[in-house]
Write a protein that binds this DNA or RNA. Structure first.
Length: 459
DNA sequence: ATCGGCTCGCGCAA
DNA sequence: TGCGCGAAGCCGAT
C-alpha cells in the first residue's frame, strides 16, 4: 500500500474510459519496490484494466553519453524481464519522454508517473498534466520521506533537516508488497520502437555522444544493485561508521549509480541496513545518515533552489567571500583539458580523476577534495564551479543526480559554515593533501585506482 | 597526539 | 535579543 503523501494529482482532470492504465516510467526504473508501478496496478485492478508501462528513450537526454545510456539500458533490460513475469506490458518508444507519455495517454484511463526533482523532469510532468485530457497522478518513490513532508522550504544544512526527517521516517520505512494484476497486458497492441531485451543493439541505434565509454566496474539493473547491497551488508557495514572515509577501501555500498537511475528503492536499502545484524548500531546509523539525511537534503536543495545547477545557488556568505578573493593569486591554474587528462602536480587528485574517468565513480571523500581543488586551480570561482559540474556530469554514472548538484555546491560552501579566512577560498572550507596523508593511506589509494583503471582498459 | 579557535545562521530561551 | 551549537577541516600551540 502506497502512502497517500507520496501520491499527488498533477491536474484536476478525471479518469476516462480507456484500454489501460498507463504508467509512464522515467525516474523509477525498476519493477520491484516501485510505488508508482504499484499504484498503477491498483488503479488498473479497480477498473479491471491492464497496466501499460512505457519508457520514452531520447537520443539527446541532457548531458548524457554512451556511458550513462549503457548503464540505463542494462537496467531497462531487467525491467522488461521482470514486468513480463508479472504479466505487464512494457514498451520503449523513441522520443522525448513526455511526448511519448502524451501519445499513449490518449488511450489510457489515467496516467501514473513517478517523480523527479530536476528542472527538465518537472517540466515534462507539467506539460503532460497540462496537455493530457485525463487524470495524471504522480507518485514519489525515490526518497524515504516525501520532500514536502520533510520540509516546505530550502534547508540551511543537514543539521536543520535531520531532526525533521528523524521525526517522521519510521512511518515511511515500510515494505511495499508486489501487487498481482487482475488483467494481463501482453495482448495490448502497442508497438515498442526498441527491444529492451537487447541493450547493446539499442545503444548502437541511438545517436548519442560516444566520447565517454561504458564501464565494466558497474553493470546496471536491480539485481546487480541488490547483489551489491548484500555484499555491503556482509562485508562493508561492520565498521562503516569509522572506516567509510578511507579512500582505498571503498567501504561503501556503491549504490549511488543505481539510486540515480531508480534501479533500487532507497526504502528497500534503508530497511535492509536497519534490519541487518551486522556491525554496531553506530554503523547502521552512519549509513542511514548518508542514505537518508544527506541524500534527501540534496532533494530538498534541487526542489527548492531553482538555481541548483549554477553558481548562483550558493548562499550569500559563500558568494560574497569567494568574490572578495577572486583576484587572489592561485598557486596553480589548469585548463579543463589538463584537469580532464589528470595531469596536475597532485598525485592524489590525479588518481581521483582517473578513477572517475575510467570507472564512472569516485570515492565519496575524494569527491570533496577533488571539487575543492578545482575551485583552487581555476581563474575564478564561477569558472571553477562550471568546470566541476561539467566533469561531474560527464563522467559519473550518478552525474546529474540531485546528489551531484548538492555535492558540487558543497565544495563551494553550500550546506556548510564559514571557516578561517584564507587565500582563494575566503571563508569556504579548505582541504589539502596533508589532510589526506594525515588521515588515510593515500599510496594505497593510488595503487588501487591503477588496478581499477587497468581492469577497464582490458575490456 | 590533542585541543582550541576560526565562522555562520538556525532555533530556542528569555 | 542573545546565546548555544553543529560541522565530512586546517593550523598552530601545547
Amino acid at each position: 500500500m502506497v502512502e497517500s503523501e507520496r501520491i499527488q494529482a498533477l491536474n484536476d482532470k478525471e479518469p476516462r474510459a480507456g484500454k489501460y492504465v498507463l504508467y509512464w516510467m522515467q525516474q523509477s526504473q525498476r519493477a520491484h519496490f516501485n510505488p508508482a508501478l504499484e499504484h498503477a496496478i491498483r488503479e488498473a485492478n479497480e477498473r479491471t484494466l491492464p497496466v501499460l508501462v512505457a519508457f520514452g528513450l531520447m537520443d539527446d537526454y541532457p548531458e548524457a553519453n554512451a556511458r550513462h545510456y549503457a548503464f540505463m539500458l542494462q537496467g531497462l533490460q531487467e525491467v522488461a524481464r521482470d514486468l513480463r513475469k508479472r504479466k505487464i506490458k512494457f514498451v520503449v518508444r523513441r522520443g522525448s519522454p513526455e511526448t511519448v507519455a502524451l501519445r499513449l495517454a490518449s488511450q489510457a484511463s489515467l496516467v501514473v508517473c513517478d517523480r523527479g526533482y530536476l528542472r527538465h523532469q518537472k517540466a515534462w510532468r507539467a506539460r503532460l498534466a497540462r496537455e493530457a485530457d485525463r487524470a495524471v497522478v504522480q507518485v514519489e518513490g525515490d526518497v524515504v520521506v516525501p520532500v514536502e513532508v520533510a520540509s516546505e522550504k530550502e534547508e540551511i544544512g543537514a543539521r536543520t533537516l535531520r531532526p525533521k526527517l528523524h521525526r517522521v521516517w519510521d512511518a515511511y520505512l515500510k515494505k511495499l508488497p508486489a501487487g498481482r494484476v487482475k488483467k494481463q497486458g501482453q495482448s495490448l497492441r502497442v508497438a515498442s520502437d526498441y527491444d529492451p531485451r537487447d541493450p547493446e543493439g539499442t545503444l548502437a541505434r541511438l545517436r548519442v555522444d560516444r566520447s565517454v565509454a561504458p564501464v565494466s566496474r558497474f553493470r546496471g539493473g536491480t539485481s546487480e544493485a541488490r547483489r551489491l547491497l548484500e555484499l555491503f551488508l556482509s562485508t562493508g557495514l561492520a565498521g562503516y561508521g569509522t572506516s567509510r572515509n578511507e579512500p582505498a577501501d571503498w567501504q561503501c555500498s556503491l549504490l549511488s549509480p543505481y539510486l540515480h537511475f531508480g534501479q533500487i528503492s532507497p526504502v528497500e536499502v534503508a530497511l535492509a541496513v536497519r534490519q541487518s545484524r551486522r556491525g554496531k548500531s553506530a554503523d547502521r546509523e552512519s549509513y542511514l545518515e548518508e542514505l537518508i539525511v544527506r541524500r534527501e537534503l540534496s532533494m530538498n536543495f534541487v526542489c527548492f533552489n531553482s538555481k541548483y545547477d549554477s553558481y548562483g545557488c550558493l548562499p550569500n556568505w559563500a558568494r560574497k567571500t569567494l568574490d572578495q578573493h577572486k583576484r587572489d593569486a592561485r598557486s596553480h591554474v589548469y585548463t579543463r583539458r589538463r584537469l580532464e587528462s589528470a595531469e596536475t602536480h597532485d598525485p592524489y587528485w590525479n588518481a581521483a580523476m582517473r578513477e572517475m574517468v575510467a570507472t564512472g565513480f569516485m570515492h565519496n571523500y575524494m569527491r570533496m577534495y577533488w571539487g575543492k581543488k578545482i575551485l583552487e586551480w581555476s581563474r575564478t570561482p564561477q569558472a571553477g564551479y562550471r568546470r566541476t559540474l561539467y566533469l561531474n556530469n560527464k563522467y559519473f554514472l550518478d552525474g546529474r543526480d540531485p546528489n551531484s548538484y548538492a555535492g558540487v555546491a558543497w565544495c563551494f560552501g553550500l550546506h556548510d559554515r564559514g571557516w578561517t579566512e584564507r587565500k582563494v577560498f575566503g571563508k569556504v572550507r579548505y582541504m589539502n593533501d596533508r589532510g589526506l596523508e594525515r588521515k588515510f593511506d593515500m599510496e594505497r589509494y593510488i595503487s588501487e585506482v591503477e588496478k581499477l583503471v587497468a581492469l577497464e582498459c582490458r575490456d
